[in-house]
């Protein structure tokens, strides 16, 4: 009963309270400024029926996935290298600080100016925005690697692949998960800006159109649809992955 209460009833009550607040706010502000839940859901269903919402969603999702994989892949490799090699770290660190503090918009505009309004430029611009964040988090993990386990891998001649898979990655797992979590939410937000500025499809492009038409229902419908998809990814992919990588921590008493 307690488990049921905490795991189901509380989130349900929270969702209902949110919708209730939304209805009240909508009736206060008027349907033009803030349409109620019903008209937003109607707009969503309409988007699904005509296929525009699904198409935009697919475009944004594939850009998000591509940029996410690139940023995580290169960022993890670079972060690991910097965490293990202090001299290299000292050399590269100023660049990382620079990238960390460069506004996303500046990176996007520069990449578009230099490489044109192409798909590759769009994805690259997003990946570069996420990259330094991954580097910093994974570097911290690489610095915290247990030297005793490294000795085991060396004495028993594990070789690179075995060492990475069984010794290094499990130790980096919490850092990789943290980078992935914050990364996913960051990446899709930046993808929208990239789409707004230089693509002719995707949720960002649709939001830009809706903004010009002052269609708040469409704005909310697009945003809500994407948040729902990301929630699904979080519960169906990220959380099971996290549980799996933490399996060994659980100890029956």
């Amino acid at each position: 009963m307690t488990i049921l209460r905490y795991r189901l009833l509380l989130p349900l009550a929270s969702a209902l309270a949110f919708i209730g607040l939304w209805v009240v706010a909508s009736s206060l502000a008027g349907p033009r400024l803030l349409p109620g839940p019903l008209s937003v859901v109607t707009a969503m269903l309409e988007g699904v029926r005509t296929g525009t919402l699904v198409g935009d969603l697919a475009a944004t999702l594939s850009r998000t996935a591509a940029a996410f994989v690139l940023a995580m892949g290169f960022g993890s490799a670079l972060g690991y290298a910097l965490g293990r090699r202090p001299l290299l770290d000292r050399f590269v660190d100023p660049w990382i600080v620079l990238l960390l503090n460069l506004p996303a918009l500046v990176v996007i505009i520069l990449i578009y100016v230099w490489f044109g309004l192409t798909e590759a430029a769009a994805v690259a611009a997003v990946a570069i925005n996420k990259l330094p964040n991954t580097v910093v988090v994974v570097r911290e993990g690489a610095r915290a690697l247990d030297p005793a386990l490294d000795d085991v891998a060396r004495v028993f001649r594990f070789g690179t692949a075995r060492r990475l898979r069984h010794v290094v990655v499990p130790q980096l797992a919490p850092y990789l998960m943290a980078a992935a979590r914050s990364g996913l939410s960051l990446v899709w937000k930046i993808v929208l800006i990239v789409e707004l500025l230089g693509r002719s499809n995707g949720i960002g492009f649709a939001l830009g159109n809706a903004f010009q038409l002052f269609d708040v229902s469409a704005i909310l419908a697009n945003a809500l649809a994407f948040v729902l998809v990301m929630l699904l990814i979080e519960t169906l992919v990220v959380q099971p992955l996290e549980r799996r990588s933490n399996r060994w921590r659980r100890r029956p008493a």
Partner: peptide, 16 residues
């Protein structure tokens, strides 16, 4: 030259 070693701490991989 195949080596094996028992360390001061057991040094087992906790996730295996």
């Amino acid at each position: 030259g195949r080596l094996a070693m028992v360390f001061q701490e057991p040094a087992l991989l906790p996730w295996r």
